[in-house]
Amino acid sequence: MSVEHEVPGAGRVAGARHATGYDEATRERLAADAAAIMARYPQERSALLPMLHLVQSEDGYVSPRGIAFCAAQLGLSTAEVSAVATFYTQFKRHPNGTYTVGVCTNTLCAVMGGDAIWEELTEHLGIDHDETTEDGAITLERIECNAACDYAPVVMVNWEFFDDQTPDSARDVVDRLRAGERVAPTRGASSVCSFKEMSRVLAGFPDGRADEGVGAGPATLRGTLLAKEKGWRAPDFPDVAHVEGQVSPSGGAPAAQAQPEETKPAATGAGPTPAGQQPGADPKVGAEESSAQRPATTPSDTSAEGQQRRQRTDDAKES
């Protein structure tokens, strides 16, 4: 990430003063928050993503001083922090609007009408992807699948669900957001919070709003309610009495009998799914031709000093 000038509430302007650091009180407050985040993990570096959310809760984007702050807290270089920040789409490289309005234009939502909603909003707001309205209210984004396909087409406002949208309903939402009205998602808190408030929650600091809103929307409940109506149930649990007893200290030893076997564990994430692969038939990653197996050819391959070197930059340093 290049060094950026911070101008509150607007884009960067040539010649604007470059904010190089937080004032003492702010820094102390953020440092206390950062310490609380680090305490959640066995290793401090795991705190980096939540800390970048924390920076966004303060500055409305990943600011140069925020990067310097994270680097100082975690003993990293600013380059190392920037490398992480630029990998993730939620970390913004420019001051974000008060509300991120994301229109899902992945295949299913696009086909169901997401493309039409996108056309409507870009034209209505006069901005394109990753741009912000002049009043600083709305940053518009094309987003990828947000796991609400049964409510397509989906719009997200500060990552709260606005289900079953139309061009008219989406335009109404952005108009009300710009007018400063309280806008409620279809599934979520009773009103949308600001980008900064959202970022603080994502840093792991609850805002006390978990009990607001519904447990499930109508699509989520379709199977549950249909089964009730038809009297369909999963098989009953056999003889549940035997599990009701008191728990006694059992000191059960961790299961560890098994040696790693021939079969390989496969990815079970809800993300990338291997195609045409069955468990145990993985492609032979890590075979001889892999780059990770190449012999050491440069000093940085072997020298601890080369690997440890901290890059310093003068202008993005926390002062």
Binding site: R40, R45, Y88, F91, G269
Partner: peptide, 28 residues
């Protein structure tokens, strides 16, 4: 732990790198 927007982090080793505070890229 909250991620920050990257499909690849659904791959289990990329997820682990991300959880360690790195770019979410899969491991060998």
């Amino acid at each position: 732990h909250a991620g920050a927007g990257a499909y690849i982090c659904g791959e289990e080793t990329a997820l682990l790198d991300s959880l360690e505070g790195l770019r979410g890229q899969p491991r060998l």
